[in-house]
């Protein structure tokens, strides 16, 4: 069964319109959303995590309309990492990761044993346990991303949504990030939807890809069929570019 399904979803905001006829994520998926800036990729992720609500159409989580889900129940199933996270207060890595336990917390004040164990597990998987006591301010961009993924893992989600997680990372860290995601996908069967412009790199990791343009999903298919030079030149209209005239 699909974890998440979009049917005839329309979302309008200040002249921008997204129309998603159909989009679904099943367990074990590793999907890439790509396309020009402002195409509506982030809108799809925001709709999926109920940060925004569609004007029309139906979004279902586990077969039930997303509208009827309480936010805390969604948070137990879907984790969403936004494009930029700016930190105002220098929380420690450990504190931040533990916040991922919020939807599961049974005590409004104290952390339970299970919360601590899950946090340590999440930090081990993402390789962040070594800086558990350090402040987030002291970490590099790549390390911060890993901490955020650890926090997301603490939610024990079935579906992980990531919005351009590889931006600002050097090539080594990008590779590192995709390896971690692939491992989560393979070993835990966690469904992952990622928005990224690192198409060359993503091609080797993601299973399927969708090209998003002007608020619509234009083409979907296997990653290794879509993310090839000729198709990409078409998608991004590179042949119309001045450089190609010469």
């Amino acid at each position: 069964m699909n974890i998440l399904t979009f049917n005839d979803v329309r979302f309008q905001y200040e002249g921008f319109e997204a129309l998603i006829d159909y989009f679904c994520v099943a367990s074990g998926d590793f999907q890439l959303l790509f396309g020009p800036n402002g195409a509506g990729k982030t809108t799809i992720l925001r709709l999926a995590s109920k940060l925004i609500q569609p004007d029309k159409g139906q979004i279902e989580l586990d077969g039930k309309s997303l509208e009827t889900w309480p936010q805390v129940e969604i948070a137990k199933r879907i984790a969403y990492l936004e494009q930029n996270s700016d930190y105002i207060f220098p929380f420690t890595v450990e504190e931040l990761v533990l916040m991922g336990r919020f939807p599961h917390s049974t005590n409004y004040f104290w952390d339970q044993k299970e919360d601590l164990e899950t946090a340590i597990w999440a930090m081990e998987i993402t390789g962040t346990l070594q800086f558990a006591k350090r402040s987030i301010f002291e970490l590099s961009g790549g390390e911060r991303r890993k901490v955020e993924i650890a926090r997301a893992l603490c939610q024990k989600p079935k579906l992980l949504l990531l919005d351009e997680p590889a931006v600002f990372l050097d090539m080594r860290q990008q590779l590192d990030l995709f390896c971690t995601l692939a491992r989560l996908n393979r070993e835990m069967n966690m469904a992952i939807v990622i928005v990224s412009h690192q198409l060359e790199l993503a091609k080797d990791f993601v299973k399927t890809a969708s090209f998003v343009e002007e608020g619509k999903i234009k083409v979907s298919g296997m990653a290794n069929a879509l993310l090839v030079k000729d198709r990409l030149q078409d998608f991004f209209k590179l042949s119309e570019h001045k450089l190609f005239d010469n």
Partner: peptide, 9 residues
């Protein structure tokens, strides 16, 4: 928005 995705009203 982070608070929202972590399940807070």
């Amino acid at each position: 928005s982070t608070a929202h995705t972590l399940g807070i009203s």
